[in-house]
């Protein structure tokens, strides 16, 4: 979440004080991202240093009464940021994916039970978010948008878990281990555990 750009966006509506910016930021993000006032002032100082906002009051000690407006440079920065796609190109090191991959190879662990435990936990989270949306005022569109974003993100994890389960069910059972000499050429992996085979196959 770029607080910096959210503050620039609020300042496009006209000059504002720090406290006012904090309050409006929380309102517009469905009050899901609390922001402390220190963060607001630090961010405003940096924006001012970079020439993206300017204060309307020259008195350095004006404190909370100091109001800020966006500069032309700030407008340009905001427009560029809004249209720049976030970096989705490199896959994140997802802890859940790693847990499921590791579970495949661990003796006495049923990977399907691991998948179900995570699935249940995520659906419980989705139920909580859905209650937030259900109880929200119909006109609170920002809150609905924030909750939707979270629900779609969690839903995509559920879909991955469903796909993982279905792939694991369809995957051929690991062959009984064969004596090393009976393997054909090119089968140099000493112990063919499901996890090493799958990891190898993906590369």
């Amino acid at each position: 979440m770029s607080v910096r750009h959210a503050l620039l966006a609020l300042l496009t509506e006209g000059p504002k004080y720090g406290l006012q910016l904090r309050q409006e930021f929380e309102q517009r993000t469905g009050e899901v991202w609390p922001l402390n006032v220190g963060q607001v002032y630090t961010t405003l100082q940096r924006l001012e240093r970079d020439g993206l906002v300017a204060s309307d009051d020259d008195a350095a000690d004006a404190g909370p009464q100091k109001s800020f407006h966006i500069t032309d440079g700030g407008q340009a920065e905001l427009t560029t940021w809004l249209k720049t796609p976030p970096d989705l190109s490199s896959p994140p090191r997802d802890e859940l994916v790693i847990k499921v991959l590791v579970a495949i190879g661990v003796r006495d662990i049923d990977v399907h039970e691991v998948i179900q435990a995570h699935r249940r936990h995520i659906v419980e989270l989705m139920q909580e978010w859905t209650r937030v949306k259900r109880d929200a005022a119909p006109e609170d569109v920002p809150l609905a948008l924030v909750v939707d974003a979270e629900l779609f993100r969690l839903d995509s994890v559920i879909r991955w878990l469903d796909t993982a389960e279905s792939r694991l069910r369809r995957a051929p059972k690991p062959e009984p281990s064969l004596p090393a000499e009976s393997r054909g050429p090119g089968h140099g992996v000493p112990k063919s555990t499901p996890s090493t085979r799958k990891a190898g196959a993906r590369r």
Partner: peptide, 15 residues
């Protein structure tokens, strides 16, 4: 659909 299911009080998983 997990998003629809999350409207329920209780979600039951069947396999």
């Amino acid at each position: 659909d997990a998003q629809l299911a999350s409207w329920a009080d209780r979600v039951i998983f069947i396999r």
